[in-house]
Design a protein around this nucleic acid. Structure first.
Lengths: 206, 206
DNA sequence: TGTACATCAGTGAACGCGCGTTCACTGATGTAC
DNA sequence: TGTACATCAGTGAACGCGCGTTCACTGATGTAC
C-alpha cells in the first residue's frame, strides 16, 4: 500500500503502471494517455518522467509485467499437468484464455497496444520465456506421435497459440456483434480437443 | 478515375475512403486521422463533412467496404470448392488469410479499429453475410460426420475463424519478434488439416 | 443558344481541447558529523 | 540528539502541435426558360 500522503509518493512507478493498465482496460489501447495515467495516480504529468522515458516506455513496462505473469501462469499450468504431456499441453492452452480473462489490461498492452515485442531486451526475453513453456509442452507431447508423422513442435504450439488468440480476440472481448452461442472457454476447449484428435493423441470419445 | 482538376473533386467520398485505408495500412488504426486523410485526398478537412458524419463514420465505411469484399471472396472460394464440401470449407479458410494479405487496410479497419460491427445496420448485415458463407461451408461439411458425434457447424466454423484470425494477428503482421519459421499460409494450411483430421473428415495421409 | 438562378461541394479561418514533453523550481527525505 | 547539507521526487507553468469540428463564405455546376 503506497502512502499517498506527502510530497513524495513512495511507489509512483508501480502506481503509474497500474493506472495505465486500468485505463487501457477501460478505454482500449488508444484511449490511454500519459496525462490521464498521471492524474489517476494523483500526480502531475511531468512526474512520470522521473520513472519512465515517456508514454511508450510506460506501456512497454505494463506489457513486460503482463508477460511475466503470463509466463508464470503458463509454467504453473504446465507443471500442474505433469507428468502427463497431454494434460500439460491442454492446461497451457487453457491458461492462455484464463490469463486474457483475468488480466485484460495486461493482455491488451501485450497484444493490442502496438508495442513491438522486441522493443527492449527484457521484454523480448520474458515473451520468449512464455513461448518457451508452450513449446516445451508441445515438444513433450510430440514424443507420443509416431516420428514419421510428427509435425515440428513449434508448429503445433503455434497452432494452439493462434487459436487461443483468435478466440480471445473474436469471442472473449465484449465486441458486440460477433456474438456466438458458445462461451470462449467451450470454444477453445472443443477446438483444442478436435485438434489433438487430429494429431492422434486422444481418442474419439474424448 | 476522379477528375482532380477544378473546384469540385468529382468522387471525393470514395477518394477519402481510399486515403483512409492507405493511412490505416501504413500507420495502423491509431495513426489515421481525418485531417490527414483529407489532405491526402487533396482537400480541406472540412470537406469531409459533406460526405461523412465524422471520423468514426469514415472508418466505418472503410470497414463496410472491407466486409463486402471479404464476403464476396469467401463466397467465391466456397463456390469454387463446390461440389466438394471439404474443398469448399478449406477454400474459405484460405480465403480468410488471402483477404488479410491482400487488403490489409480493410482488414485492420474491420478487426482492429475498434469499430463495433453493429455500429450501423449495413455493417452488421454484410458482416453477417461473410459469417454466413463460412457457416454454410461448415454445415455442408458436417453432413459428412456421423450425426451422433457431429459438433454444431457454427462451432467449428468459429474454430476456423479463430485460428485464421489468430494466425493473421500473430504471424502475418510484420509484428517483429513473434517470428516463426513457418509462413502464415503453411501454418494455417497445416492447422486446418490437423483440425479436419480431428473431425474424421480427412485421412491420415492428407 | 444564352442568360438567370438555385443548388451543390468545396474553402479557409477559427475554435477549444488535450496531448506529450521541457524546464527551472521547491518541498521532503536521508545522511554525516 | 540536533543541525547542515546533498539528493531525490515531486510541482506548475509553459510550449508547440495536430486534432476534430463549426461556420459563413464562394466558386462551380446544372437547370429552366
Amino acid at each position: 500500500m503506497p502512502k499517498k500522503r506527502g510530497y513524495h509518493h513512495g511507489n509512483l512507478r508501480q502506481a503509474l503502471v497500474e493506472a495505465a493498465l486500468q485505463l487501457i482496460e477501460v478505454r482500449g489501447p488508444t484511449g490511454f494517455t500519459l496525462s490521464e495515467a498521471a492524474k489517476q495516480a494523483g500526480v502531475t504529468p511531468a512526474a512520470v518522467y522521473r520513472h519512465f522515458e515517456g508514454r511508450e516506455d510506460l506501456i512497454a513496462e505494463a506489457a513486460r509485467q503482463g508477460y511475466e505473469i503470463f509466463a508464470d501462469l503458463m509454467q504453473y499450468a504446465y507443471d500442474k499437468g505433469q507428468p502427463s504431456a497431454l494434460a500439460s499441453f491442454e492446461a497451457t492452452g487453457r491458461a492462455y484464455l484464463a490469463f486474457a480473462r483475468k488480466y485484460p489490461g495486461h493482455y491488451i498492452a501485450m497484444f493490442e497496444s502496438g508495442v513491438p515485442v522486441n522493443r527492449t531486451p527484457e521484454l523480448a526475453k520474458v515473451a520468449a520465456r512464455a513461448r518457451g513453456v508452450m513449446e516445451r509442452a508441445a515438444n513433450d507431447l510430440s514424443q507420443h506421435i509416431a516420428p514419421e508423422k510428427r509435425p515440428p513442435p513449434s508448429m503445433f504450439s503455434a497452432h494452439i497459440w493462434a487459436m487461443s488468440h483468435g478466440v480471445v480476440e473474436l469471442y472473449a472481448r465484449n465486441s458486440p456483434g460477433t456474438q456466438s452461442p458458445f462461451s470462449p472457454e467451450d470454444l477453445l476447449e472443443t477446438g483444442i480437443g478436435v485438434y489433438l484428435r487430429g494429431l492422434g493423441l486422444i481418442g474419439q470419445d474424448a
